[in-house]
Simulated assay, not measured.
Amino acid sequence: MNNTYYEAINWNALEDVIDKSTWEKLTEQFWLDTRIPLSNDLDDWRKLSDLEKKTVGLVFGGLTLLDTIQSENGVEAIRYDARTPHEEAVLNNIQFMESVHAKSYSSIFSTLNTKAEIDEIFAWTNTNEYLQKKAKIVNEIYKTGTALEKKVASVFLETFLFYSGFYTPLYYLGNNKLPNVAEIIKLIIRDESVHGTYIGYKFQLGFNELSQEEQEKMEDWMYTLLYELYENEEKYTELLYDDLGWTEEVKTFLRYNANKALMNLGLNPLFPDTANDVNPIVMNGISTGTSNHDFFSQVGNGYLLGSVEAMKEDDYLIGVPKDTH
């Protein structure tokens, strides 16, 4: 007679070593927004134009919404289809860090903005047509999609849709402005890089179990979804950046990251854009080593950035020729 009602998780009996390596990477990278001295950016902030300040606020409002979806619905939707108990543990970590990300933007707001400005930002975020559309597209997949479709939506959100917002702080960092705000964004990007590759890897495990006909049907659905999201993201980008004159550069950055999302999922890139086409100031913002604000607990992201960036595509890609990257 089997007396087992509930099995304890055993990290010494791994079904998938990627679960353990991802857990270790995520816990090594743990950080909190409260450790970053955001007030040190106030001098830079005061020198920005009113239009730039407004754009920064709206950008972070949009990012807050996306991270809220991930922390409240996205990870929860994926957890039901976890292949191993260790995967569930990794997803628990990811879900918590998505909440940290969402809270971090409010820390930025409370440092840079007045209460009235913050209220205005959230009112815009909660009613903007294009922002709400992408939230609805992704969240409806979380609610009604298949296990694989939910993973695709998650990877598209984390590796693609965030980047219309990430462009702004990376641009300022590349111009030696708002370094502490950008420190938070780089910490978030570092997390999202692992989240996107890990969930993309789990997608590929399931995708490779499908018949050829099912795979072709799934690929068609994925590319159709990406086109729908990109068309909406173009309009969102135009709304945010036309007045600053940044729109076309941001769209290039979006296409570059859409390709990375596809590669996380084991598919070939769709757009011709590469890192060489992205504004070099922004790419410099991504690659620049950052200050370590708390040496003893190593909260800053500079000390781990290189090792994490090395894990972006190849570590988790299965069955995709390396020359497609």
Rank of each mutant, 00 (worst) to 15 (best):
D41N: 02
V181M: 10
N292A: 00
S287I: 03
P269T: 04
K25P: 05
P272E: 07
Q95P: 06
W11S: 00
T111R: 02
L131D: 04
N176V: 06
K322H: 13
V299M: 13
E234G: 03
A13Q: 03
L265F: 01
T111A: 02
V308Q: 11
Y172G: 00
K20G: 08
R83K: 12
Y227Q: 06
G206F: 09
L262Q: 04
I184Q: 14
N301R: 15
I318Q: 12
F203L: 12
K235E: 07
A182F: 13
L26F: 05
D273P: 04
T159L: 14
L42Y: 03
Y105F: 07
Y316F: 09
T290N: 02
L91P: 10
Y130K: 00
A182S: 09
A116I: 02
L91Y: 11
T288Q: 11
I188S: 11
R35G: 02
P269H: 05
N2S: 14
L48A: 08
A82F: 14
I121T: 05
T127G: 04
L91K: 06
T252V: 04
D43L: 13
L42W: 05
D323R: 08
L173I: 05
S297L: 08
S164R: 05
M311R: 09
L14C: 01
L26K: 04
L226Y: 08
N126W: 13
Y142W: 11
N276E: 12
W45E: 10
E214H: 04
G266T: 03
E228V: 01
R35T: 07
E15M: 00
T274F: 12
I199D: 05
D314C: 11
I121G: 03
V59W: 15
V138A: 05
D67A: 00
L226I: 06
P179D: 14
L148Q: 15
E238T: 04
V56D: 02
R190G: 06
L225G: 13
E98A: 00
M222Y: 09
A135G: 03
D41E: 00
A147C: 13
S164W: 04
L170A: 01
V100Y: 09
L63W: 07
I18W: 03
N264I: 03
D41P: 12
Y167D: 11
K54M: 13
G200L: 03
A275M: 10
E72L: 11
T64D: 12
Y167S: 04
E214V: 03
S71D: 14
D315L: 14
G302K: 14
S297M: 08
G74F: 07
